[in-house]
Amino acid sequence: MVLNELKDHQNIIQKVIDTLSGDIEAACEMIISTIKSGNKVLLAGNGGSAADAQHIAAELSGRFIKHRKALPGIALTVDTSALTAIANDYGYEHVFARQVEAYAQPGDLFIGISTSGNSPGILNAFDTATQFKCKTLGLSGRDGGKMNGKCQLNIIVPSDITARIQEMHILIGHILCKAVDDLF
């Protein structure tokens, strides 16, 4: 069982290398230009994708590999008072869009993470980020879902298995953080 899991993981990594290297490079350019411009990175996702959003935000505001200045990476998944108030008053599908509306400035980068690419809350947040003239980056899987039409770049992990998609999302997140580290 263990060997099969590792081989499955290896196969997905090879597919990512073969098909997504250019998209990941473009995503690195998006985050680099955002940071160089003095703008911030807003991130959101649900469940495991929320954990990934928080992980990437922590690598930006804390550090990834080397000591550098703290950078504005904000996970929109951590304020339970905002999440529950917005969900109660507007519906769960608006918990991230309302926060994007509160925090976004033109030139910021919104990263939405959804393994299916169809999370209503993430889709609404992309709409709001676009209205606020933010750059938009999606991390998804399967066929990319409705995120394909909602963000400037949707990196679609070529898998239908949620665990494999999430593993690749955090790998891509770490590559983005390495690109940021290389600025300093």
Results as ranks from 00 to 15, higher is better:
8 D>R: 15
165 I>H: 10
91 G>I: 12
163 A>E: 01
80 T>Y: 02
101 E>C: 05
81 S>A: 14
44 A>R: 01
43 L>S: 10
117 G>R: 06
143 D>Y: 07
138 G>E: 12
70 A>Q: 13
149 G>T: 06
162 T>G: 07
106 P>N: 02
123 L>F: 02
147 M>S: 07
22 G>M: 11
81 S>H: 03
18 D>L: 11
143 D>P: 06
145 G>E: 08
147 M>T: 10
10 Q>N: 11
27 A>L: 04
84 T>M: 03
171 L>D: 04
174 H>N: 12
99 Q>D: 04
63 R>G: 02
132 F>R: 14
84 T>K: 01
161 I>Q: 15
115 T>L: 09
95 V>D: 01
119 S>R: 04
152 Q>T: 13
127 D>W: 06
63 R>L: 07
84 T>Y: 01
112 G>R: 08
178 K>P: 00
58 A>E: 14
133 K>T: 09
40 K>D: 00
8 D>I: 03
24 I>D: 07
130 T>W: 01
52 D>C: 13
102 A>W: 02
13 I>N: 05
139 L>S: 00
179 A>F: 00
54 Q>K: 06
120 P>F: 06
25 E>T: 13
19 T>K: 13
114 S>N: 04
45 G>M: 11
10 Q>W: 07
183 L>V: 07
31 I>V: 15
100 V>R: 01
121 G>H: 06
165 I>G: 08
141 G>F: 01
